[in-house]
Amino acid sequence: MAQANSKQQSRGGIQLPPGLTDEDLLDLYGTMVLSRAIDERVWMLNRQGKAALVASAQGHEAAQLGTLWALRKHAPEFFCFAYYRDLALWVGQGLSARDVLLGYTAKEGEPISGARQFPMHGAAMRLKVMNLSNVVAAHVTHAVGWALASKLRNQVNVAACFFGDGAASQGEVHESMNFAAVQRLPVVFFVENNRYAISLPIRKQMAIERVAQRAQAYGMPGVTVDGTDVLAVYGAAAEAVQRAVKGGGPSLVEFDVERYLPHTSDDDDSRYRDRAEVEAGRLRDPLKRLQEWLSRSGVLTDEHDAALRRQAKREVDEATEYAEAAPYPDAGDLLEHVHAPR
């Protein structure tokens, strides 16, 4: 990376990765602000009985967005295979607050599944994101298949596959990692490890310290980084993406993150999590961390920050109003899309 040194900039005493600009950081920060605003709103709607089930991305945002920016900078083409906690990833790729709210309220015009699937489940081919199913870890095989197709076509289309520590116990993940490594496929496995599989703590999920330790056994590099530090995320993701692009095969990148909220809105985590632990986790807020650093570095002014937050709130308010007023899908279309036209 020596050739890129001239482009590197220092912010608040921290060296920016090559190619990453102030505009990138502000863009990423604005996305995180919007994602958090949407996240808090849908949780509220759930408590009002207007959204059936919510799984929050709060605490995971830097892992998702740092990875996304690394993909944009380093992959000629990519596709994201998301899981249910990846709201920030979707928002980063352009899913609007209105689209998300239409999903949570299951209204006509919801663009990723036509209100057929859980909120935040479906596909947006235009945005290069899919999260079809909520069978934990099943999508990891699809990412591998996507990477295989890319290889067969002699294209460089990196499959970015996101899943949690809970999914890492599934057979499909083990099969997929082995398969991808044997065939040197351009896929990166991003593990958002918040140390809980619903209620099961990490020490009961695995007998090792880190999911990334498994990488070596499959024959691929594995690394664990602080998933609340967007630059650490970006750096680790960029390296793995570059490896996939160069034909070096898959990598495993594990992000150490916090789950602020219960597993979903249907869960009560006070039954299995100590409050002190949850509160301590909230001190590792990726949004606050980025905001403080950007302010300290002079990249983000208080006025700019306030404007971003106002803008996010306005978008979310409008989206909520629109979604609440929208009709449910036409029941006459119930059977559409079960089978292809041919």
Binding site: M130, H142, G145, W146, L148, A149, E172, F179
Partner: peptide, 23 residues
Amino acid sequence: IRETPIAESVFVGAGAGAAMAGL
């Protein structure tokens, strides 16, 4: 003509994924 490990979940799932990619 691709030989796979004995791993039905991944080679069927990868088949589905490759089909989604247009193959």
